[in-house]
Structures are given as structure tokens and as C-alpha cells.
Design a protein around this nucleic acid. Structure first.
Lengths: 211, 211
DNA sequence: GATTTAACTAGACGATCGGTCTATTATTTT
DNA sequence: AAAATAATAGACCGATCGTCTAGTTAAATC
């Protein structure tokens, strides 16, 4: 037996033959999302993130100019990841439009369950924290919601064309309300450690759809 | 003119003839609610609260055993205040039940507007922060939602009896969904600094009511 | 009027915060 | 081979965090 956990790193630039994937910067972003979806921005210290992925402080400020800049990048990552996921689900033409939304919801619920409902939505978390966050985050977070909403809106338009939704339904408004309610449901699910709020809202939402 | 702002306090036990109302403890709770509805728990330091009401640090731990204990008391205060407010509005028999809810909503929106949508809901804020809060808060916050929901539920039952709502409506579920959505709407209103999300959700909610 | 008790405050405390800096080492460029 | 660049290690900084002890003062008690 050679050595235990510590995995002491040598000083200086590391050799290249390292496990190519998962370089420091990537690992920082990865664990950043994990911790911030759970605890938010203000309550999370940089040191905690560093410790989790065993990266020294010096590296953090090599890759990011500040905690704020790090946060900005995290939001971007997270937003893009979900925008892509929304595209996958909501453009799946093997399903009727409304069922695509249901599929996305089911996937999201499974995601929360996987982490015992301890992690919520990064965008929702930071939104609630706006009062103590740099003002630059506001525009960014609002843009994310707009991007997510437009995808749902498009899917609802498709639902109209497929006869799943009343032709005079206001898809923009319905998409907005979906995200308002969904974020509220995620918050409650985290608080109750249960999928029930997600389902209560979803049931209500679909039942209320004008058909 | 005698003296300016500083209002230096003497050491030791104060004289009794003091302005009875507004003692230090009360002022701490007051400003605590104000700041925490805006910035949440983790992002708010005790010093900031103290400075705002000109109370020295030593006093804080005379009145409260810890920041957590202070938070617990704040939640209690806030929850009771709104429970009372809900009672006022939702039991106002001069209005039909559903209009009572609308009146409460209008009042809440006005409250947010008064502070330029910078302050949200204390319970919602702390709920989102649960990941970094002492576990004891969870039960307390859940109980608050339950208390608020039961009041709305009772009002919806009244709506059934007045013929404003379908007799087979699930009032419990509707009340739950109201608070899920409302908290989501408050979050978005804070983020957008606008009453629009509140109205979007409200419109949808009432339009969806089974009648 | 002396003593005890309750009410309150000043400021030190160690821990941790975000952030900076220098030293060290590997790689790339010249 | 030399120089420039990339990356890491970790001590260090001032500020602030929540907490706590040792006081100081007035009120209550005797």
C-alpha cells in the first residue's frame, strides 16, 4: 500500500499526462453548480468549493477574476445546460407538445429526487438572493428566464397547432406562469423534501390549460 | 440645537423613565425583518442590523442567545403578522370570498411596491436558503406555510358555499397551489422589480378556478 | 444606605471571508 | 538552451463573521 487519500499535489505547473478530463477549471465549475444549487451564492465560500475538488486557492484566481465572475459563469453554464435540455424535450416530435412538457417535468423531478430534494434551481436561488448580489446579476437572471420561457412558449404554440390547446390561448403568458409557478414549486419541494409541491402545481397547471 | 445623530448610549442599566416603546429588543426585531426580507439570512450580518438601529453588539447577545435564535423569533413574528393580516382580509364578510383573496393580493402588491420590490417574503427567502440554515428552521417554515394555507382553504370553502366555486373543488389543493405560485411570483417580482409576475400568476390562478 | 440583582454595553476573540502575492515547477515558444 | 507563459501551492492581508466575557450602571431588596 502506497499512500492514502491526501493525494498531495506538487507545487508548480502539473505534468501534462494527467487525467486529461476534469482539469481544475472544469471541476471548479462543476462543484460550484452543485454547491450553489444547494446553498446559494452568499452562503457558499470559495474555500468550500476549493476543498471539495482539491484545488488550491491560487488556481481559482488564476481561472476567475473574482467570486462574482465565477458566479456569472456558473449561471451561464447552468442556463445553457437547461436551455439545451429544454430543447431536447420540447422538440421531441415523437410526443404531443403537452406531453413533452410533462416529460421535462418528470425528468426535473427525478433530478431533484436523485439529490434528496436538497438541490434546487440555481437561477431561482440567486434570484431570491438578488438583494445582496451585484446588480449585474439581475439582468443576467432575467434573461435566463426569458430564454427558458420562450422555449415553453414555442411548445405551447405547437400544442395549439396540434389541437391540444385552445387556439386563442395566450402562450406567452402561459409560459411565464409556468416558470413562475415551477420555481415556487421547486422552492417548496426543497423545503418539504418531497415531490408533492411539484406535482400539485403541475396538476393544477395542466388542468387549467384552456382546451 | 443640542446634539446630532450619534445619540451615544451610556453604559450600564438604563434609567426607567425611558421611552417605553421601541426598546432595543423591539427595534432589533423590526429592522431584522426589514433586512432579511430583502437580503435573506446568510447574507445579513448582525452588525448591519445593529448599526441600522444604533444598538451596540453587546446588547444583541443579551436579548438573543444566537443569530439562529434571533432568526427563529423573526420568522415567528413575521408569520403571525401575516396570519393576522390574512384573517383580517379573508374573514371580511362584506366581500364575497374570492374578492377577499383578491383584496389580500392587492394589499400585498402595494406592500411590495412601497419598497420598490426590493423586499420579498421572509418565509420564502429562508426557505430557499434551507441548504445552509440550521435544520430546525425547516419544520418552522413548513408550519408557517401550512398555517397560511389553511386560512386560504377556509376562504375557498366559503366560496363554495356562496356559489363562487364549484362544489367539488379541492380547496386544500387549491390553497396549496396558491402559496406555491404566490411565492414564485414574489421571487420573480423581486427579480424584475415589477408587479407583473404577481398579476400574471393571479390572473391565471383565478381564471383556472373551477366554477 | 448598603448590598444584591437585573439590565445593558464595550470590546476582544478566533474563525472565516474574499482576495492578493510570491515562490515553484512544467510547458511552450523562440 | 534561454525566455516566456501556464498552472499550482499556500502564506498572507484586512475586513467581517458570530460569540463571549468582563465590566458598568440603575433598580430592587434589605
Amino acid at each position: 500500500m502506497v499512500s492514502a487519500q491526501p493525494l498531495k499535489r506538487r507545487r508548480g505547473r502539473p505534468q501534462k499526462n494527467q487525467t486529461g478530463v476534469g482539469n481544475a477549471r472544469e471541476r471548479l465549475l462543476q462543484s460550484g453548480v452543485e454547491i450553489l444549487t444547494e446553498k446559494g451564492f452568499s452562503a457558499t465560500g470559495i474555500d468550500e468549493i476549493l476543498r471539495r475538488v482539491n484545488v488550491p486557492k491560487g488556481s481559482f484566481y488564476h481561472y476567475f477574476s473574482s467570486k462574482d465572475a465565477f458566479g456569472t459563469e456558473l449561471i451561464k453554464r447552468y442556463a445553457d445546460y437547461f436551455a439545451h435540455k429544454l430543447d431536447i424535450f420540447l422538440k421531441d416530435e415523437t410526443l404531443p407538445p403537452l406531453e413533452r412538457i410533462r416529460a421535462f417535468i418528470a425528468d426535473a423531478e427525478a433530478g431533484m429526487a436523485r439529490y434528496e430534494f436538497k438541490r434546487g434551481c440555481l437561477v431561482g436561488n440567486l434570484g431570491q438572493e438578488m438583494g445582496s448580489l451585484p446588480e449585474q446579476f439581475r439582468e443576467q437572471l432575467n434573461a435566463v428566464f426569458e430564454a427558458w420561457q420562450s422555449r415553453v412558449e414555442a411548445c405551447l404554440e405547437a400544442a395549439i397547432m396540434m389541437g391540444q390547446l385552445a387556439p386563442d390561448a395566450d402562450c406567452k403568458k402561459l409560459a411565464e406562469v409556468f416558470w413562475i409557478g415551477w420555481e415556487g414549486a421547486v422552492l417548496r419541494a426543497k423545503l418539504e423534501k418531497s415531490p408533492k409541491p411539484l406535482r400539485s402545481f403541475t396538476d393544477f397547471y395542466f388542468a387549467a390549460m384552456p382546451s
